[in-house]
């Protein structure tokens, strides 16, 4: 970010700033949600009024379906869906209506819509509020999925999501909301389908998303002390997925560790493993290793939560196993 003025701010504030800037830029951007406009002092409500900032009842199907219909008619709704799991209540609208309108109409209509939801709240929120369930959306045609890991990416991906002509699932990580980082001032757009090399390295490629990007970076620092140079890549959007950047890195390192908070069989890791096995096999000098959550629900008790999830130690061990 050389040459760009930045400000330290939280991931949550950066996301909100993007929504605010886009609402100021384009009057067709509207904000819906079950917990928006919580008070008369709400900054969105004060800036844009009750016509554009609308509280919706706990009716996910009507809420998201209504937003999709508004999108078809020229609006660009941002729906704050609170938790990714709440999308499951309205699955038809998310994965079988809004995402298909463009395709099924032969391109005659578009549904520019952002569904913003949090995921991965592994802090004692137990089985139904902690999932990293993006895997069940990434293979859905017509739907884009963004998983920012830093405040700057949160701002840039949200702005791009709002300007995108497709339904976008913008998934913010609950454990990152209060993390601080430098965020470019003013307009900041992060393109979709463009992975970011968060740490260059030459020995082992580690691909991680969301909160696990920071676990991977911490693991990389520990491994650097042992003389293992780890490259950490964050895909940033998993649909579209930038496999080219990953394959280029594997060409260089010959070793790939995939870190993912999702259950293994519904993870981005497994999809990337398949792509690299098919298209990067000749570059591999060790088996691909996946560090994912177990194929289990997240348990409530803290030691159980730790047992189920990937962490820094598990990443370090995986990298040592292939380096």
């Amino acid at each position: 970010m050389t040459g760009v003025t930045t400000r330290e701010m939280t991931y949550a504030a950066a996301t909100n700033e993007a929504v605010h800037l886009e609402m100021a830029r384009d009057e067709d951007v509207v904000l819906f949600g079950q917990s928006v406009a919580g008070s008369p002092d709400d900054p969105f409500l004060k800036a844009f009024g009750a016509d554009r900032v609308r509280v919706t009842p706990i009716s996910e199907t009507a809420e998201i379906g209504m937003a999709a219909g508004a999108a078809l008619a020229g609006k660009r709704p941002v729906v704050d869906c609170t938790m990714a799991e709440f999308l499951l209540v309205s699955m038809d609208q998310v994965v079988n209506e809004a995402n298909r309108f463009h395709y099924m109409s032969g391109g005659r209509v578009t549904a520019p819509l952002v569904l913003k939801a949090g995921y991965g709240f592994t802090a004692g929120w137990a089985g139904q509020h902690t999932g990293s369930i993006y895997g069940m959306f990434m293979g859905v045609p017509g739907l884009k999925v963004a998983l920012p890991s830093t405040p700057a990416d949160a701002k840039g991906l949200m702005a791009s999501a709002i300007r995108d002509d497709n339904p976008v699932l913008f998934l913010h990580h609950y454990l990152l909301l209060l993390e601080q980082g430098p965020v470019p001032e003013g307009e900041h757009l992060v393109p979709f389908g463009s992975a970011d090399v968060k740490r260059p390295g030459s020995d082992v490629t580690v691909v991680a998303t969301g909160w696990t990007v920071h676990r991977a970076l911490a693991a990389a620092e520990r491994l650097a002390a042992d003389g293992v140079d780890v490259e950490v890549i964050d895909p940033r959007t998993i649909a579209p997925l930038d496999t080219a950047t990953i394959l280029t890195s594997v060409e260089k390192t010959g070793r790939l560790v995939l870190v993912d908070q999702a259950t293994r069989h519904s993870s981005v890791a497994t999809v990337i493993a398949g792509e690299v096995a098919e298209h990067g096999f000749s570059a591999l000098r060790a088996p691909i290793v996946q560090v994912t959550a177990l194929d289990a629900s997240i348990a409530y008790a803290k030691p159980m939560e730790d047992y189920v999830l990937p962490d820094e130690d598990k990443i370090v061990a995986a990298v040592r196993g292939v380096a």
Binding site: I64, G65, G69, L72, A73, K75
Partner: peptide, 12 residues
Amino acid sequence: GTVPAALGSALA
């Protein structure tokens, strides 16, 4: 499936 979509277009 399209009942709520009609609401959104009406709102727009």
